[in-house]
Design a protein around this nucleic acid. Structure first.
Lengths: 252, 252
DNA sequence: CGCGGAGTTGAACGCATTCAAGTCTTGTGG
DNA sequence: CCACAAGACTTGAATGCGTTCAACTCCGCG
């Protein structure tokens, strides 16, 4: 699979010059294998990473060593912009499956930001959308039942991956284990397993071998009380999704 | 009580010139009463707000109309920077008790950002710390037991308010109801009540009439598995807290 | 005096965790 | 080729944390 380009990841945001500009200051691609720790909590950073391919997870441990996923980043995300501004991270970043990242030295970014305030503001924008996703995760964990949390999470990944051209509305690749999903949705692996079984039995969606299958996307979104307003998608994409996901009665 | 100044809120971040600069482009203070909706979800915004006094909450409703707090902002927070970059908000902002805000027109901010990229980056920094707090709330809701969630939340407010000079390590003002706290910690009001009763009974902390009383701060932090690394406090303040909160055996 | 919001308490129910056992797949080495 | 180990997934049964519904107190306020 080809690497995710900036233009494809952010339609309507970066123009051609800006995309080239950002691309130019990135170093060589670096590959990481499954479960590799890409950035370690607390370490000082001198560069930030762009995720070209694959998935990475932000995690934090509790005292007894159990993990909680704080975010799941997909190809086309800047996974480490925070470190450019805050110098260090307050959590770990792990590869999920095979990933490819490209580093941007902070020195280059600083230079860029001094000369191109508009581009800098666009990077700010990207980081604020991440923050909006964080807030939505708070909503999910705080207000939704177990089953709705799962459906809501699968809905989010459906829309985010679709927006990057990384899946259809009925199927996408998600190389997580059920244990990962439990750590995302704030439940035990056993319970995640049972609830996924329920979703499967009632035909809402299925998750098998790192593939999510959705026979009726509108129903999945309903089951998860999902809406994608917080993703700040490009207007045309938003409209497209509204058209494809809203009324929908019969399907092939 | 005096309004929170920028220099007091962000020690070591904004220098005198920058603080004046930001202050200069703010409009007249505006007051809001309890439960007033300060910013409405989805509306286009032409200005961003600085919170001089009081508390505001970011909330999102589920389908059945129940609220979840996504964040709690205190005096000295920029409560609406997101709108400067993203034009609209994906959630509501409510006053909690009496609050005073000062608006900054987006036009002025845009002008400023073009001329002073360093200052803009500092505002970016502020918004990234908010994002770090969001992530910590995800951790709290996803991994901690009910009682630990409460103790963790009270710990966070202890440290954040102390950092702004808005409380001591044994007592601070927090004008919330038990129902608000339930909506923050992802539980029912009844259960929040019972757990607060437990914390009171075991002497961890007490919450009464909008006051939080902590006889042994170190114990509270332990009960909530709290650490403040994610708040990116000024180094001297961090050290001060470590000194005051870490070993601590006897107290007056 | 009565109303409403906040706090408190009891009891029944149910969702989720825990512990445990067992299946299935995959990769490794005899 | 088979044996075996490891990890992911699945299922059962017991326990318990948290919700739900309900009643009741306390307080400030009109």
């Amino acid at each position: 699979m080809a690497d995710m380009s900036l233009e494809r990841a952010y339609p309507g945001l970066f123009d051609h010059r800006e995309a080239n500009c950002l691309h130019a200051l990135q170093g060589k691609p670096e590959a990481h294998g499954p479960r590799a720790r890409i950035v370690e909590c607390g370490q000082a950073q001198t560069r930030s990473l762009y995720l070209c391919r694959g998935f990475v997870g932000r995690t934090r441990m509790d005292r007894s060593g159990k993990r909680q996923f704080l975010a799941l980043q997909i190809a086309g995300d800047f996974i480490d912009l925070q470190a450019f501004v805050l110098e260090r991270l307050d959590h770990d970043i792990h590869a999920i499956g095979e990933v490819v990242v490209r580093p941007s030295p902070h020195a280059s970014l600083r230079q860029l930001s001094a000369t191109d305030s508009e581009l800098m503001q666009k990077l700010w924008r990207v980081s604020l959308i991440d923050a909006a996703i964080h807030r939505y995760w708070i909503f999910r964990l705080g207000r939704l039942s177990g089953r709705a949390r799962l459906a809501n999470f699968f809905s989010e990944m459906l829309v985010r991956l679709y927006a990057r051209g990384l899946g259809t509305l009925t199927r996408y690749h998600l190389p997580l284990t059920q244990t990962d999903i439990a750590e995302i949705c704030g439940m035990t692996p056993v319970h995640a397993n049972r609830l996924i079984g329920e979703l499967r039995a009632e035909g809402t969606c299925d998750f098998l071998n790192g593939e999510v299958l959705v026979s009726d996307p509108a129903q999945l979104l309903r089951a998860g009380q999902f809406s994608w307003d917080y993703l700040f998608l490009h207007a045309s994409l938003d409209e497209e999704l509204r058209r494809l996901l809203k009324p929908q009665k019969a399907r092939a």
